[in-house]
């Protein structure tokens, strides 16, 4: 599965990593470690017509992006 580990990267890298990874298709799973990239990645995906779901995994968040 297409997966991006964006934990620890500062703004706006998680979004750019997501953008690049989406070129390889969906579903894409993005891991982030705080609320700011969680919101940013979700907003980016929703703005670009993707379906987004997410869940907390321990200290981190797992965002799943599908067409």
């Amino acid at each position: 599965m297409n997966q991006v580990d964006a934990r620890g990267y500062s703004c706006p890298e998680p979004v750019l990593m997501t953008k690049n990874a989406l070129k390889n298709g969906t579903p894409l799973v993005v891991l982030v470690d705080n609320e700011t990239p969680l919101q940013n990645v979700r907003r980016f995906a929703a703005n670009n017509g993707y379906q987004v779901s997410w869940k907390e995994v321990g200290e981190d968040y797992e965002i799943t992006i599908t067409k």
């Binding site: 620890g8 990267y9 500062s10 890298e13 470690d33 200290e59």
Partner: peptide, 12 residues
């Protein structure tokens, strides 16, 4: 940023 600029990962 488009060229891949990154200050690398932070750690807990």
């Amino acid at each position: 940023l488009k060229a891949g600029f990154s200050l690398k990962k932070s750690q807990p």
